[in-house]
């Protein structure tokens, strides 16, 4: 486990980081918590010439309630989210998902921004980000732009964050009734199927984000449509959950076949919706 040679830079400001990225282009990689990049480098599956450590940048490490919204800096660790009183009160889904990630060591170092940009199709965050319909703020050489969660995940390990850009912040609206139900891949602890559900009983609307099942995490649109305007009774939730894998080509690997993943999507969606509705 010895990485290929690389240079290391630790910018102090976001602008400095952005200019390093624009100068070095594809040869540079951002280092956040290091729990995806460092293993890839040690296996030499990633061989960046320059590692830009954004661990000391100001302004990416706070959790704030702002204008009825919550803003989470990209460098906030999973453990910080899991322990956040603000989030526990206003957006417990983030707390629940953070607690389901990896183990304590991973949670202590890994960051929400790093995890989102790495975009492992079996990561936990995508489910929550989709179910919360989050906004993601990205800084680039031309300034800042905002992408919705639905447009963020573009492929396996690929996102809307382009080369030269830095994910800065994740913004969500407070949501009380929510749940995350995850079936772990036994070896890695990644999600074979993770379903995040947010239920708005007054507006009679649900949002369901599913990770681990498809090559790209997705919103279970058919489930959401089926429940639009419906009273959220147990029977209707379970029936709607039957659509959780509709239109999806599930992943298949040695840990789970495609049809088992689709089945888990349905079961975990029903469980997540029921749990969320009961909160």
């Amino acid at each position: 486990m010895f990485a290929a040679p690389f240079d290391y830079a630790r910018p102090k400001t976001l602008d400095e980081a952005l200019s390093l990225l624009s100068k070095h282009g594809d040869e540079a990689r951002l280092l956040a918590g290091g729990h995806s990049l460092i293993p890839a480098m040690k296996l030499r599956l990633a061989q960046p010439r320059l590692v830009v450590d954004i661990g000391r940048l100001d302004g990416l490490r706070q959790i704030e309630a702002r204008d009825g919204r919550l803003a989470i800096g990209a460098m906030v660790t999973h453990a910080e989210i899991a322990a956040s009183r603000t989030l526990a009160d206003l957006c417990p889904l983030l707390v629940e998902v953070a607690s389901a990630i990896g183990d304590l060591q991973v949670r202590n170092k890994g960051t929400i921004g790093g995890s989102l940009v790495h975009a492992d199709p079996a990561g936990d965050w995508p489910a929550a980000i989709l179910a919360l319909d989050a906004e993601i703020e990205i800084a680039g050489p031309q300034g800042r732009r905002t992408v919705t969660a639905g447009a963020f995940f573009t492929g396996i390990l690929e996102t809307a964050v382009k080369p030269g850009e830095i994910l800065c912040e994740i913004r969500v609206t407070a949501a009380a009734a929510s749940a995350y139900v995850k079936t772990e891949q036994k070896a890695s602890g990644f999600a074979l199927c993770g379903v995040a559900a947010v239920v708005d009983a007054t507006a009679r609307r649900v949002r369901v984000g599913i990770t681990g099942v498809a090559p790209v995490p997705y919103r279970a649109a058919a489930v959401e449509r089926a429940l639009e305007g419906q009273a959220l009774a147990e029977g209707s939730l379970a029936a709607a959950a039957g659509q959780a894998a509709a239109g999806v080509t599930p992943l298949a690997d040695i840990h789970a076949s495609a049809d088992y993943r689709a089945h888990l999507a349905r079961v975990n969606t029903a469980r997540a919706l029921q749990r969320a509705a009961s909160r």
């Binding site: 036994k186 070896a187 990644f190 840990h255």
Partner: peptide, 23 residues
């Protein structure tokens, strides 16, 4: 309940790390 060493039909070892070999 879960451990197994998996080679694919080409003899590639698919459980080459703890990410795929479940202890």
């Amino acid at each position: 309940l879960f451990e197994r060493t998996v080679y694919d039909e080409n003899g590639q070892l698919l459980t080459g790390e703890f990410t795929d070999y479940a202890l």
